[in-house]
């Protein structure tokens, strides 16, 4: 098939702090230059298993670059990434997916021309055998409230349904870590509440760790355990949502005067 390569060389994580056992993800001095521009600058980031972390910051803070470095869409200029205790720096995106990292893009990038069931088949056939497609598809459709849309062409779904389908497709991969880039951008208030509930459920029931990039501070407040603030490519603050909201410096760089 050539769609997966289990023989990828891995080196054990070198964790001088000695507290990496429950860490699903850690970065060390992760840096990315685009020409003269430093998009992420020496980022040291750590995420516990089953944690839901929100990543906020003004435009151009390097949030998307950071996520793309984690998925392998971009190659780091320097620094290293450890996942599940093993270094994954330099591995290709599909190898990282095989190990349990999945990504939900900013623009709902489902397969427009496929039906909902066909969309689900793409991730499902990576993890289950042929005779299970039907039952697994049904389970996911039920969970994400899309059962009646099984044969609908994806481009005909509402925006909220598309977002749910995409999260469903990511969950079909049975991931350990899911990266979400603005999952509620452009959604209505009710749809946003639905997604918030879904994400919390994914963390609580499935034990999946989440990193969520989000601009909507109310949404962040409704879901996040901890918040990381990026500014100019570096980690500016890290803490609980209350600490972050109360921090005048964060207000200055990000939240603006209306908050």
């Amino acid at each position: 098939m050539g769609v997966s390569d289990p023989t990828v060389k891995t080196t054990p994580a070198v964790d001088e702090t000695g507290e990496g056992s429950s860490r699903v993800l850690q970065t060390r001095g992760l840096t990315k230059h685009f020409g003269g521009l430093t998009a992420t600058d020496e980022v040291d980031f750590a995420l516990e298993e089953g944690e839901l972390r929100c990543l906020i910051g003004p435009n151009g803070a390097g949030k998307s670059t950071f996520l793309n470095l984690l998925t392998g869409q971009l190659e780091a200029s320097s620094g290293s990434i450890y996942y599940d205790g093993r270094e994954i720096t330099g591995t290709s995106p599909h190898e990282r997916v095989d190990r349990g990292i999945t990504m939900k893009f900013q623009v709902p990038s489902i397969y427009d021309e496929f039906t909902v069931a066909q969309n689900l088949r793409i991730p499902l056939q990576q993890v289950v055998d042929g005779d299970e497609y039907g039952s697994r598809t049904r389970e996911i459709l039920e969970r994400f409230d899309l059962l009646s849309e099984r044969e609908t062409t994806a481009s005909d779904l509402s925006h909220g349904q598309q977002q749910r389908l995409e999260i469903g497709m990511a969950m079909a991969m049975e991931p350990n870590l899911m990266l979400l880039d603005e999952p509620v951008a452009g959604l209505s208030v009710e749809e946003t509440a639905d997604i918030a509930e879904l994400l919390e459920e994914i963390v609580a029931d499935d034990g999946v760790a989440l990193i969520v990039i989000e601009h909507d501070i109310d949404f962040v407040e409704s879901i996040a355990d901890r918040v990381t603030v990026l500014d100019q490519g570096s980690i500016f603050r890290e803490g609980s949502i209350e600490e972050i909201r109360a921090d005048p410096e964060v207000k200055r760089i990000y939240l603006g005067d209306d908050h």
Binding site: H94, T102, I122, M173
Partner: peptide
């Protein structure tokens, strides 16, 4: 299975790679 991967690659290569396909 490979056929689905082929068509998915045509539709959206980046997305398909993110589902673990080479």
């Amino acid at each position: 299975r490979f056929g689905y991967a082929i068509v998915a690659t045509r539709e959206d290569e980046t997305r398909t790679e993110m589902f673990g396909y080479d």
